[in-house]
Simulated assay, not measured.
Amino acid sequence: MSVSAPISRRERLPSLTGLRAIAALMVFVFHIYAVAVFASPGVTRWMSHSASQGGVGVTFFFLLSGFLLTWTARGDDTARRFWGRRAAKIVPNHLVTWVAAFVFLSVSGLTLTGGFDRFGLDSLPNLFLLGDWFPRGGVFFSMNIPSWSLGCEAFFYLSFPLLLPVARRIGARMLWPAAVALVALVWLMPVIADAAFHQGPLVPGLPVSEDRMWFVYTLPPVRMLEFLLGIVLALIVEAGRWPRIGLRTASALSLAGYVGSSYLPYLFGLVAGALVPLALLIPTAAVADIEGRPSPWRGRVAVWLGNVSFAFYMVHQLVIRWVHYALGATRSWDTPQALGVTALMFTVALALATLLYYAVELPLVRLFSQARTTSAAQPATPATAPPQPASIA
């Protein structure tokens, strides 16, 4: 099988931006399924395989984060500037949605575990992106539930200045064995969870105990395996060792992995089931952009949706909960009405995400990017820490 050529300069990768929108949509559809908007048993059975694997979207984001941070790294950056730009990317959106969640929960009192503790474990660990370290569903899935993944990303960002120099020391011939080893470790995590944890209280609404869910799905050091795999995949592309895989083939395999993971035992389907197809898709889409080959994911609309996808990810579940609460907190609808409710939730979420992106996220990202450009224009001593991209990971 032929391989790509070594990369001598960094290209923009719009297909990866477009794919972000698909990943965010996966999570949205899963949350529609999770709150039982559709009353039809037939639709629910169909959605149990077509819409139940929203966690695959988070796996995509973690892989993509490692890939893009490595891809756009520069040697003249410092850890402090890197952390500042990453904070500017995730913290403002988190704070805005945390306040919105605080208001909603104060009004409704609808948490996973009962009454809402305004200034306790229900809220404060999440505010500081530390909820992932507590093996309790009411903590790691507190407040604005999708924000749990930001706790993992914060851990990745803190570690990246140390991880990248180590990863770059891996010889080119050992990059593929390293990738295979990381995939194997991800598959090993559910086995460890089953062996190490006894069946305790279930996560409300899910067929898995809180401690096992915490270990496999939300614990940052475990989820870092995907981030590390993204780093290694970027290095493989850099070295010109990525095999020639058609983008349509990689996309189809990812779709099959998404659906197929719903047939696996629950803990394996959460992360491991679709990992390999997604790990094939991201570098394949990147190489398609580098080589100028056709890609359905780099169209103008797809890229715009990808740009607002982080804001959409942060607001969508709050919108679902607010609308569902307003229309009847435990209500389901016949299929035509349910489609209308879903369309309403999506439209409101996209509108609010657009506002959040243009009013909060984009201005701060540009501000810190300009600061990086200004610093780069001044004479500086080469940094020992790896660089961080101005682009959004």
Score class of each variant (00 low, 15 high):
S15T: 08
Y325F: 15
L364E: 06
A349H: 12
P204G: 11
V91P: 01
G299P: 03
E153F: 08
R86L: 08
T218P: 00
A279Q: 04
S149D: 02
E11R: 15
A36R: 14
W71R: 01
A390P: 03
T342W: 14
L127G: 03
F119V: 12
S65M: 01
A326N: 14
L63A: 03
P6S: 12
V99E: 10
S147T: 06
F82E: 00
A252C: 12
L13Y: 06
T111E: 00
Y157A: 04
C152G: 05
F160Q: 01
V166T: 05
H198E: 14
H31A: 02
I170C: 13
L130R: 07
D117R: 05
Y266I: 13
A172P: 02
L110A: 11
L247F: 08
I392T: 09
H94T: 07
T384W: 11
W176N: 06
Y263F: 11
L305I: 10
H316W: 11
P125D: 05
D334R: 13
P135F: 08
F368P: 00
R168Y: 15
P382H: 05
G55Q: 06
R85C: 03
L112Q: 02
V27S: 02
A329N: 09
T111S: 10
F310W: 05
E238R: 15
E291R: 11
V58E: 00
T374K: 15
A178H: 12
R331S: 05
V276T: 08
A376C: 13
G200E: 11
L327E: 01
L225K: 08
A326L: 13
H324G: 05
L162K: 12
W333L: 07
A353P: 01
D132R: 04
G120K: 09
A343V: 15
I282N: 01
R293E: 10
P161C: 14
G55E: 04
L255K: 04
L305G: 04
T381W: 10
A383G: 14
I170D: 06
Y217N: 04
L110N: 05
A359Q: 12
A353N: 12
N126G: 08
L63C: 03
L16E: 00
A353S: 15
Y258G: 02
E361I: 09
V91E: 04
S15I: 03
I282R: 03
L164Y: 05
L127W: 15
A390Y: 08
V232S: 03
L202Q: 07
R136F: 11
L16V: 02
V203N: 00
A51C: 09
F61N: 00
F160N: 02
V319E: 00
V203I: 12
L64F: 12
V203E: 00
N307F: 03
L367G: 09
L130E: 07
S106W: 10
Y157L: 02
I290N: 02
A311I: 02
V103A: 09
V287Y: 01
V365R: 13
A343M: 10
L352P: 00
V139F: 05
G137K: 00
L355F: 14
H198K: 15
P146E: 03
T113E: 10
D77Y: 08
Y313E: 01
F227V: 06
V180A: 13
S309D: 05
R169N: 06
V43L: 13
F155G: 01
L202M: 11
L247P: 04
Y258I: 07
A196R: 13
A359Y: 15
V96N: 00
P243S: 09
A88T: 08
Y357R: 11
V96I: 12
Y217I: 06
W133K: 04
G151V: 05
L185W: 11
